[in-house]
Nucleic acid binder design. Structure first.
Lengths: 249, 249
DNA sequence: CGGCCTCTTGACGCGCTTCAATAATAGTGG
DNA sequence: CCACTATTATTGAAGCGCGTCAAGAGGCCG
């Protein structure tokens, strides 16, 4: 009923990218196949721990094995802006490849485990396992596309549409991790959702309440149950001017 | 007076990325250095011509040599959303690496010339000149960072701040191409600017008029003269609540 | 149970969109 | 060269979605 990761994104906004990528298989699956490369090390992090410090010199990529992470951009005034969330199969630290230093802070939203892909020097991929460089490039491209679509959706659609889209995406990710697509627990706070979606925490809260009143979802703190999957999809696609019209309060 | 590309982005929103990258030198500069790779072919396009068709199978990357391009995402309803603009040194088609087909349409805003980087098969970079793969990865990472910062700015800041930022960025790009940073001609229409910045064409027009009335800029059709560079920077950084308060109409 | 934090809910104001009309420019043919 | 049309840009007025400010409710942990 819910399209998890069966159909990869074709030319529309609907489903997310195919998360079970080649790189995941390559890194998370195979123990040792080539010669020169040591088995990649894992690194465990606790809730709230920073995996990557912004401004720090680029040294490694991280492939998320378990847990949720947020990447945060901190500007010169100290304002924090959530740039994205990452779960199993997502790559972290790719923003450091080009500049030589990381741009974003990466913080664990809960207990997490990542796979460390170390680099001898900035952009030196010759030390990588053959074939991994290509997979890496593909994964980065996929994330680029995904981020682009997400960002575009954010500054095109209305607040309810953004929330609906976000919830559906979270459900998809939840399904890809093994849990249900319609019943999952958000790893991030309202504040983090609001920052990511470019709105205020009050609007997030109000919209979730509104969705709940319409029986689109069921909300209990961070526990989300999607009751009307198609209804949310309908809100996520167009401008969705029909959001707060018929329900008074 | 105007910081063109002297200082590359450090951990703030100010300047853009360093456009005169390694890949530009590698591709646009050197005629032939390695052995197996033929000299890359150029391709000229006219105004309005589509360089890349959305949904088409990925076959090549394009490095802009001259001219301006826009990349447009067309959703299932036929709505067009400008995802970004590209000038000399920018890479086009990177969104096709991961999925195997292009996501965005790429259209020339004027006469243009690109350098074609063909791929034998999807993601097969072994046929590339040694060292180019690394430079490619770095360039993609830089563009990823740039797009991310731009997108973030868009859905964080107010309309005048977005416009101010956009104008300053255009000036920087103009300077990097050889023209003046404070006196240049926009390659894109108001409609395309509006779509890119996530607002309406009316807001773009009104904001430009307002800037002109404040003697921040001088506008004559697509010709832009930046009169108060610092003033625009001041508007581009914060929320800039001081935009339409003291000027009545 | 008490303190703290996250979340919710309400009222109000403003910035942007929407709708609508006019002006300016470019492109075309007589 | 000038009139004619289509496209693009400007300007105004009205509506509303979302932000802001403020207060209250609920959950987590010592």
């Amino acid at each position: 009923m819910c399209p998890s990761t069966a159909e990869t994104s074709r030319n529309h906004l609907g489903p997310m990218i195919n998360w079970s990528s080649d790189l995941s298989d390559l890194l998370l699956g195979i123990p040792d196949r080539s010669s020169t490369i040591p088995v990649f090390t894992h690194r465990s992090v606790k809730r709230g721990q920073r995996l990557i410090h912004g401004g720090q010199e680029f040294e490694s990529l991280y492939l998320v094995n378990a847990g949720w992470f947020k990447s945060v951009y901190v500007d010169e005034s100290g304002n924090e802006q959530v740039m994205g969330f990452a779960a199993r199969g997502d790559l972290l630290g790719a923003d450091g490849i080009g500049a030589g230093y990381y741009l974003n802070e990466v913080v664990a939203l809960g207990v997490g485990d990542v796979l460390v892909v170390p680099f001898a020097s900035r952009g030196d991929f010759s030390s990588l396992r053959p074939g991994l460089e290509t997979s890496l490039l593909q994964l980065i491209s996929r994330q680029l596309v995904h981020d682009q679509l997400a960002m575009m959706a954010i500054n095109t659609m209305t607040a309810p549409a953004r929330i609906a889209r976000f919830l559906l995406a979270q459900g998809d990710r939840s399904a890809s991790v093994g849990c249900s697509a319609n019943c999952f627990e958000l790893a991030m706070s309202r504040q983090e959702i609001a920052s990511y979606l470019g709105m205020t925490i009050e609007t997030v809260s109000r919209t979730l309440t509104k969705f709940s009143q319409r029986d689109l979802i069921q909300v209990a703190q961070r526990q989300i149950d999607i009751l009307d999957h198609a209804g949310l999809q309908g809100l996520a696609s167009p401008d969705s001017a029909s959001t707060g019209s018929d329900i008074p309060g």
